[in-house]
């Protein structure tokens, strides 16, 4: 089947810098052909100037990530006809949230820097015991997902927090932190959690689910971030808006069964920042929207909710 493959290109050495433009190529595609095979065919037969990255061709090296019709994917793991059928066109662009070097090649160094900064190696407190560490199946499974990351950058490309804050730790580095925090041999757990509890850390994830949705290895970085948050709170690292937000919500549910917005806002923000919200409060009030504290009667059956919270806490 002959289809048009449109590729978002740019060449920083050409005139106009890296001003992107769309170039269309007519390609005969066969059932089962991947996007990477298509790109390689174009490069060999139509246009040797086209740039893209690849190495393993089998979804292991993480080199070939790009954006297909708006969605970040691995070129070598994606069949072109399936994409064409869904959208009636195929538009290939470089990963989002990274600077483009040329055509489909982006500068991944911010990702390597983030990974480097989290010290991606095991830091055990002592030498392995005689006969080596004995790790149970459960203990391995706890960090199994996080161990699968191939550093392709797809999660970072989709990440809505990284889009508005390039300094945000990002899903891949956060998942990597959990890979060590969750490792029974690790000794630097608390220090690692302290580091990610600050600005641009785990509490800046907006839970947009993009990383869980698109990770080609099903690492589920957002779930890793949730697990890091649990660990951080358990370690007592609660002096930040993110952790206060969680505690305020659980308290509110324990008290009235649902969200008491005013108290929740106040407790999450702390006194000073709550004052900053007063102008908005006044406008909300004028529109009959201002949430008032403690006016909610508890829901019917609140004892049940409290009973369940107690039951889970007891177990912990």
């Amino acid at each position: 089947m002959r289809i048009k493959v449109k590729i978002k290109r740019c060449d920083p050495t050409g005139r106009g810098g890296c001003e992107p433009y769309l170039q269309a190529y007519d390609v005969d595609v066969k059932e089962g052909m991947t996007i990477l095979e298509t790109l390689m065919w174009i490069k060999e037969n139509l246009d040797g100037t086209l740039s893209f990255r690849r190495s393993c061709r089998s979804a292991i090296c993480g080199s070939c990530a790009l954006v297909v019709n708006g969605t970040p994917k691995l070129a070598c793991k994606t069949q072109i006809l399936r994409e064409y059928e869904g959208a009636r066109e195929v538009v290939l662009s470089p990963l989002s949230n990274f600077r483009v070097i040329k055509d489909l090649v982006v500068d991944l160094s911010p990702l390597w820097d983030k990974i480097g900064r989290i010290e991606p190696w095991l830091q055990p407190g002592s030498e392995p015991p005689e006969g080596g560490w004995i790790i149970t199946k459960d203990e391995v499974e706890r960090i199994d997902r996080e161990s699968r990351c191939i550093l392709c950058g797809i999660c970072n490309s989709g990440c809505n927090s990284q889009e508005v804050d390039p300094e945000f730790i990002g899903p891949s580095a956060a998942a990597k932190v959990y890979r060590f925090v969750g490792d029974v041999r690790e000794d630097g757990k608390r220090r690692r959690l302290e580091r990610v509890s600050g600005p641009h850390g785990i509490w800046d994830c907006s839970r947009c689910v993009m990383c869980n949705e698109y990770c080609p290895k099903r690492v589920e970085p957002m779930t890793s971030i949730e697990k890091l948050r649990v660990e951080a709170i358990r370690e007592g690292l609660v002096d930040n808006a993110g952790a206060r937000h969680v505690e305020a919500l659980v308290d509110s549910v324990n008290r009235v069964g649902r969200l008491d917005e005013a108290v929740y806002t106040f407790r999450s923000l702390g006194f000073l920042r709550s004052i900053g919200m007063i102008p908005l409060g006044i406008r909300l009030e004028l529109h009959g929207k201002m949430p008032l504290p403690h006016i909610f009667p508890a829901i019917e059956g609140i004892e049940e909710v409290r009973e369940l919270i107690r039951a889970v806490e007891e177990e912990e």
Partner: peptide
Amino acid sequence: MVRANCCGAGLFNDKNRELNLTLNGR
């Protein structure tokens, strides 16, 4: 569902995954 509790907006998961499943299980 007047007896239903807040879903936690995902934040229960930041406290305790089992809490999330239990309260939403309810």
